[in-house]
Simulated assay, not measured.
Amino acid sequence: MLKIGITGGIGVGKTMVTRVFALLGVPVYDSDARAKWVMHHNEALRQELLSTYGPETFTETGELDRVYVASQVFNNPQKLAQLNSLVHPHVRNDFEAWAASHADKAYVLKEAALMYESEAWKQMDQIITVFAPLEIRIKRLLLRDTHRTEADIKAIIEKQLSEEEKISRAQHVVYNDDQQPLIPQVLKLHEQFLTANS
């Protein structure tokens, strides 16, 4: 089974691309959603988070207080790196177990915004980068995340690895630029992955 990573900066439309793959019957691992699940359910990680960020890390009902954790790490690169160093190894293990449960498939997809920063790319056979021009990304995000300003969005984008770097490190690029139709690009990759593993 091939393990295909899919990445790209905020607002490029990774979720839209993975939905097309999912409609083709490809299992998709959403790293962001699974990281939240692991932070809630992995007891070893819960204890690490509590000892690092204090009792406020979880609410009285045992839910992760994401607002509190974000406030601790967002403008502190060292604390953010520390959080990632705690969470990412558990997510890597979770992905391996998940992938093993889909061993009957030709390939699986792992969607991760921080594919390179988390070193998740090392688990992958190939990487797809989804690309969209900056102005399109900002427009999409202003519509989607109505609580964010353009300055907020630009600050997030500046913290992420550049699109040029992501493209240079990927084997495949999907252009989600409102110019090139998305579905034919995904279908072509789907056929390539099936053929590579047949």
Score class of each variant (00 low, 15 high):
Met1Ile: 10
Lys3Pro: 12
Gly5Ser: 07
Gly5Leu: 09
Gly5Val: 09
Val12Asn: 03
Val12Tyr: 01
Gly13His: 02
Lys14Thr: 02
Thr15Trp: 00
Met16Asp: 06
Met16Gly: 04
Val17Trp: 00
Val17Leu: 02
Thr18Leu: 04
Thr18Gly: 06
Ala22Cys: 09
Leu23Trp: 07
Gly25Glu: 08
Gly25Lys: 13
Val28Ala: 03
Ser31Ala: 15
Ser31Cys: 09
Ala33Ser: 15
Ala35Pro: 05
Lys36Glu: 07
Trp37Val: 13
Val38Ile: 07
His40Tyr: 07
His41Ser: 12
Asn42Trp: 08
Asn42Ser: 07
Glu43Lys: 11
Glu43Gln: 12
Leu45Tyr: 12
Gln47Asn: 15
Glu48Tyr: 08
Leu50Lys: 14
Gly54Tyr: 04
Gly54His: 08
Glu56Cys: 05
Thr57Glu: 11
Thr57Gly: 07
Phe58Gln: 10
Thr59Asp: 13
Glu60Pro: 11
Thr61Tyr: 08
Thr61Phe: 06
Gly62Ile: 05
Gly62Met: 04
Glu63Phe: 05
Leu64Arg: 06
Arg66Cys: 04
Arg66Gln: 12
Val69Asp: 13
Val69Cys: 10
Ala70Glu: 11
Asn75His: 12
Lys79Met: 13
Gln82Thr: 03
Gln82Ala: 03
Leu86Glu: 10
Arg92Lys: 15
Arg92Phe: 06
Asp94Lys: 08
Asp94Trp: 10
Phe95Tyr: 15
Phe95Trp: 11
Phe95Ile: 05
Ala97Pro: 07
Trp98Glu: 00
Ala99Lys: 09
Ala100Pro: 08
His102Ala: 09
Ala103Met: 09
Lys105Thr: 10
Tyr107Lys: 11
Tyr107Gln: 11
Val108His: 06
Leu109Ile: 14
Glu111Val: 11
Glu111Arg: 10
Ala113Trp: 01
Glu117Cys: 01
Glu117Asp: 01
Ser118Asp: 00
Ser118Gly: 01
Ser118Trp: 00
Ala120Ser: 11
Asp125Trp: 06
Ile128Ser: 01
Thr129Pro: 15
Ala132Gln: 04
Leu134Ile: 13
Glu135Pro: 13
Lys139Asp: 02
Lys139Phe: 00
Leu142Glu: 02
Arg144Asn: 12
Arg144Trp: 04
Thr146Cys: 03
Thr146Met: 03
Arg148Lys: 15
Arg148Gln: 15
Thr149Ser: 15
Glu150Phe: 04
Ala151Gly: 11
Asp152Ile: 02
Ile156His: 00
Ile156Cys: 00
Gln160Thr: 13
Ser162Ala: 09
Glu163Gln: 15
Glu163Phe: 07
Lys166Pro: 14
Ile167Phe: 03
Ser168Ala: 15
Arg169Lys: 15
Ala170Leu: 04
Val174His: 06
Asn176His: 04
Asp178Thr: 14
Leu182Cys: 02
Pro184Ser: 02
Pro184Gln: 02
Lys188His: 13
Leu189Lys: 06
Leu189Ile: 02
Leu189Trp: 00
His190Ile: 07
Glu191Phe: 04
Thr195Leu: 09
Thr195Gln: 15
Thr195Arg: 14
Ala196Pro: 01
Ala196Cys: 05
Asn197Asp: 04
Asn197Ala: 12
Ser198Lys: 14
